[in-house]
């Protein structure tokens, strides 16, 4: 068991390092230009957003349609924090400043997660959905009317701290944290609420606390994603965080498979890169996007990966096994 775990860690770490090295070389040799690097950074941010939303939507099984609201809180609060630090003339290496930004963005969004989650999480299903939409819209309208953050004209002059190197590793760390959380005692308790709330309550799981915990974690990481977004774009406009953006993130999670973190990652990559690649067909791109969405849901309602996770270790095992058994069996598919 332990041996297997160790091997799995080794393989995954190696794979991530290899992936990074590959990108690093490609960027250094200018094989991929800034345009693609920009898309890759946006993809990483969307991966974080999708992973965090998956805690509520996938693990907890709740309909949360206001994720853009938490992202906005994280983005604006972190931007205000770094602006204050820079304006105060405090010298700080940019990586430290980014860490401060991430912490502020995550914590402020997390606090709002507790404030919003505690009263609302006793609502069920669609009612919770509409309430989360409501909060996200209120947050957006607040930023439109709030002078200190620039109001509707937007917040300018945010330090640009995010590049591919740091966003890549932050994404990896967030993914590892959320993976570990999902497998932990608390994560399993949260998943039990999704499966059957009443049964898990009877089994002694304090469901309310765990619901709020899951919701707050999701808000924290959404705020962190928002902080990354703010310090990548260097300019924030409230209109970015409209209702459709929340829906977009929700679509990513459902399309990847509710509860499947690897599914979220895959889906975030596909759905961020695909529209950008369809730029040539500008008029038709959303038409194609929506058609794919409908067809996908009709033929595979559980999403790309369903609830299962893609495991690189298993994949490699299977490859090796198949090679060994080439003559005896016709493949290892379930």
């Amino acid at each position: 068991m332990d041996q297997k775990k160790k091997k799995s860690y080794l393989i995954n770490t190696a794979a991530i390092a290899l992936l990074y090295l590959l990108f690093f070389v490609l960027i250094q040799t200018k094989t991929i230009n800034n345009y693609f690097v920009g898309i890759m950074i946006m993809t990483c941010i969307m991966i974080i957003m999708a992973l965090s939303l998956n805690i509520v939507a996938g693990f907890l099984g709740q309909m949360a349609l206001g994720h853009a609201g938490f992202m906005a809180i994280g983005a604006y609060s972190s931007a205000m924090a770094t602006k204050a630090i820079v304006d105060a003339g405090i010298e700080m290496p940019s990586i430290l400043l980014l860490l401060v930004a991430l912490l502020v963005g995550g914590l402020v969004a997390g606090i709002f997660g507790i404030l919003i989650g505690t009263p609302t999480l006793r609502l069920r299903g669609d009612y919770l959905g509409i309430v989360t939409i409501g909060f996200a819209e209120i947050i957006r309208i607040f930023f439109i009317n709030f002078g200190p953050t620039g109001g509707a004209a937007g917040l300018k002059g945010i330090s640009k701290l995010v590049d591919f190197n740091n966003v890549f590793f932050i994404t990896v760390i967030v993914a590892v944290l959320i993976f570990t959380f999902g497998r932990s005692k608390h994560g399993r308790a949260i998943i039990s609420i999704r499966e059957d709330e009443i049964a898990s309550e009877s089994a002694g799981v304090p469901t309310t606390i765990y619901k709020v915990l899951g919701f707050t974690m999701a808000a924290f990481f959404a705020g962190l994603g928002g902080a990354l977004y703010a310090h990548y774009q260097a300019f924030l406009e409230p209109s970015k965080f409209a209702f459709m953006f929340s829906i977009e993130m929700f679509v990513i999670v459902v399309l990847g498979g509710l509860g499947s973190l690897t599914g979220s990652i895959l889906s975030a990559i596909v759905l961020t890169v695909l529209p950008e690649m369809l730029r040539e067909f500008s008029e038709y791109r959303l038409l194609i996007y929506s058609l794919l969405l409908i067809i996908m849901m009709i033929f595979r309602p559980q999403g790309m990966l369903g609830r299962s996770e893609f495991s690189l270790t298993d994949f490699i095992d299977k490859l090796i096994m198949r090679k060994n058994r080439k003559t005896t069996s016709d493949g290892g598919e379930k």
């Binding site: 693609f36 596909v270 890169v273 695909l274 690649m277 369809l278 067809i295 033929f299 595979r300």
Partner: peptide
């Protein structure tokens, strides 16, 4: 279908 989606992204990219 999934494979197609993923592939199309990379070929387009």
């Amino acid at each position: 279908l999934v494979a197609m989606l993923v592939l199309s992204v990379f070929t387009l990219a």
